[in-house]
Design a protein around this nucleic acid. Structure first.
Lengths: 216, 216
DNA sequence: ACGGAACCGTAACGTACGGTACTGTTCCGA
DNA sequence: TCGGAACAGTACCGTACGTTACGGTTCCGT
């Protein structure tokens, strides 16, 4: 998550090197599996020798790519504010929309596929990096909102982590696994908005204390 | 799902051939990525030539393996019965327990990793097979229960598919993606039971018509 | 202008692995 | 007893790819 070793990497890289990583991302999305060093060199217009000099080996290149992408996804954090039922619901929806957009993006799908493949055997912890910057990062970002909501008497739950996992499930449902397995599931912006609102309302139905639509 | 081409395969295989497929499953779980034809032949004590004669090529072997595993997972179907609030809740919990057991089993994890890797490029639709026998199979199995519940006035929903996806999300949450990405998440039988009950109660809180039981 | 570092393009090397061919053995039916 | 099908074991082939090496070019500092 905010582990220095995870962060500093992206900072230490030159624009030229970041361009290489973007080339890797592009290849991952387009070619999927065929992520060969030669293909990267060709796409990035650099030599293989340079790739090895900069990133050590193939795993180093992939790790740097995952971290680079992760650093790009740091979306707008939740800034604490005075919460009422409506702004709470809005914030929940914003989180849900953001998350659905992320997991349905071709880049995320390709990246998760790569990390999952690696999790099978390799030591380089791509899966851990993806988890830290995906599932756990959004958990950390959502927690303040949930706790502010509880503080404000709008939410009711014992454990913020458990509450978050419920929200996570209501938002993601079967979307990510279906996309990873190659299901041709298309999510339009309108559908994402609608699904996000549904998930938020379901979450509020389970954990809300005051009615979202203020009547009294 | 019940496509003949998907089913008949497993029936047409001899016990010896099924033993080979079990060897493949074992290797997948243990070695993950290193699923080489030579390793399969060694483990199954058969020659590579025989593997190619029986399964055509590597993809054929993997496909047969996935289908073989799928045929083993056909767990107890829901048999229609007179539903009351308690038996409905019990049935939901049984489904949830079954699903959590499946997705947290090493075999399922290895299989999904393999299918996801393949979904990136390959044509052989391993991902489709896994989806059909996992996510969609349980959806089909759960649907009669949901509709009987609605029939009996115990559940309230417009679309059974949407209701199922909500249930799916409440049960699975972040479990599958975390396991696939290599998170060392351990689910004991007791935790599975407790999570299943929580998910069922949450689902009933959202879609139940009569009060099922105490809150979580 | 010169020297060297950085880097591109490409050739070359080693290996892992999918797939094939060959040999020897077992087993079965005539 | 004989012949052949099935199959184990193994050697072999071709290729793809990670990695290294090398010649040529650009660019910067002196």
């Amino acid at each position: 998550m905010t582990d220095p070793a995870t962060e500093s990497q992206a900072e230490a890289l030159t624009p030229r090197q970041l361009a290489v990583l973007d080339a890797v991302l592009g290849l991952m999305v387009e070619k999927g599996d065929q992520l060969t060093m030669a293909a990267v060199a060709r796409r990035a217009s650099c030599s293989k020798e340079t790739l090895y000099k900069w990133f050590g080996d193939r795993d180093g290149l992939l790790t740097a790519t995952v971290q680079w992408q992760a650093s790009k996804v740091r979306a707008g954090n939740y800034d604490r504010q005075k919460l009422d039922a409506l702004s709470l619901r809005d914030s929940l929806i914003r989180f849900a929309v953001n998350w659905l957009e992320v997991i349905s993006s071709p880049t995320s799908i390709a990246l998760n596929r790569l990390a999952i493949s690696h999790a099978a055997t390799h030591e380089s912890n791509l899966g851990g990096i993806v988890l830290a910057n995906g599932r756990f990062a959004i958990g950390e970002r959502l927690r303040p909102l949930l706790e502010d909501g509880r503080e404000a008497g709008l939410l009711d739950f014992d454990d913020a982590e458990t509450a978050f996992r419920t929200f996570f499930g209501l938002v993601g449902r079967d979307v990510q696994i279906r996309l990873l397995l190659g299901d041709a599931l298309k999510l339009s912006a309108a559908e994402i908005e609608r699904d996000a609102a549904r998930a938020a309302d379901q979450f509020l139905a389970l954990h809300g204390r005051a009615k979202p639509a203020p009547k009294a």
